[in-house]
Design a protein around this nucleic acid. Structure first.
Lengths: 93, 93
DNA sequence: TAACTATTTAGATTATTTTCTAAATAGCTG
DNA sequence: CAGCTATTTAGAAAATAATCTAAATAGTTA
């Protein structure tokens, strides 16, 4: 995973909204798209960005493509942020 | 603070590098710029993006402008990510 | 297999972002 | 105040990203 790709993926509001939607479980591309005012092609583009960033993965059932959160990458991002937590040499409290 | 702005700010590698540099303490715009192969004007642009996202703040001393991490925003981002932690109804372990 | 449904890919267009050069601002120092 | 040093702002050019329409793929079902 590259942080560049991950943060790029997170930098778009539509993509963040998709991630939030997926918290409740997997959704098909069509179900995801129905919440947006953009074409299916554009939604598909955003899903591919999330997929390349490993933030989601897909599974196929019948002629549907389901998307699901890949929580392990979230853990890694949390670790990146943890780098910024605390310990400046002369912390007051 | 808006997550849109924050994630946008984090999506650029130069800006992430700046943040990492600032972990050790405040640095002037010039010191920051010396680590990059870009003009001072471009560095200044990146600093302004980080500043608008509240990821850093500036203080002035003599004719220097010092930049410093604003750790409180990092806490808020961690909270955003925490939304994705755990509890899918049927968690196994 | 033909028509249908769901989704993706291609290619073009538009919008946004990054970067540069040149000029402007601002504080300092002789 | 004149000339420095440090940094920012303006404006333009180049690069990247988001979006659309139209066409392609793929699986489904009558």
């Amino acid at each position: 995973m590259s942080f560049a790709e991950t943060f790029k993926a997170l930098s778009d509001p539509a993509r963040r909204k998709i991630l939030l939607m997926l918290r409740e479980g997997k959704l098909s591309a069509g179900e995801i798209g129905s919440h947006f005012d953009m074409t299916g092609a554009t939604v598909s583009y955003h899903l591919s960005v999330l997929k390349k960033a490993d933030l989601v993965y897909e599974t196929k059932q019948k002629n549907f493509v389901f998307y699901e959160l890949n929580t392990s990458v979230f853990e890694e991002i949390m670790l990146w942020f943890a780098q910024f937590k605390g310990e400046k040499s002369d912390e007051t409290e």
